[in-house]
Amino acid sequence: MQRSARRKRQGFLSPALWVPAGLALALLGLPLVALVVRAPWSQLPELLAQPSVGSALALSLATGLMSTAISLVLGIPLALVLARSAQWAAVPRRLLRALVTVPLVLPPVVGGVALLLLLGRRGLLGQFLPFQLPFTTAAVVIAQVFVAMPFLVLAVEGALRASDRRFETAAATLGASRFTIFRRITLPLVFPGVAAGALLCFCRALGEFGATITFAGSFPGVTQTLPIATYLQLQTDPDAAIALSLVLMIISAAALVSLRDRWVPGVTA
């Protein structure tokens, strides 16, 4: 039934819309095509074999996985609160939603400055820390969580809103505790949304540049992630920068293609 509804929708798509849609697709896709076409394929193995590339890639993958894990642990509960906030008064509900969404639209450099002012050596909280957070790998992870967690929260929240609450009610009447309901009913129901959100979150963390270089700095093996290494290479060796960009793009594309049509759970799932 869902499929026939979809076909019906497509039947109403005016041919006049294909032109702007095609332009939009070209704007999104052609730069990436150019990157692939102009990549220095013959020197690629040599460029990617540099030890600095390996260490930047390893650091990016490790911090990306770590920040995705933290986002899962903190973000799913936040998504539950956000989904529940539908019953709140308008002002706190909108404030909460804005707080979760702001990192998505904020220039990441601004996020990095804000993190410095909070957690830096003279920051609001940072001055009380017994250790210095900036210029550490932990700072990279914090910057990535700040920028990437909203993707997970909003994806999971969408799935929660679309899920059937009656299963939870039924479980409750059968005597399940609230945490059991969360673990055995809610979480499995929204699993596609969690998976999609985690992948988006990981890809965003992988590409994080502005907040990281501002808050965590740039030092090989400690804070210099792949996007930062790419930017620095651009100053002296554009071919190497293209090679690094290609690696980032392939990892992100592979992760996103594996999402298939679970992009926005609650709409298509």
Partner: peptide
């Protein structure tokens, strides 16, 4: 023994 190698002098 730097802790960070910045992308420009203003940084």
């Amino acid at each position: 023994a730097p802790d960070t190698l910045e992308q420009d002098v203003k940084a």
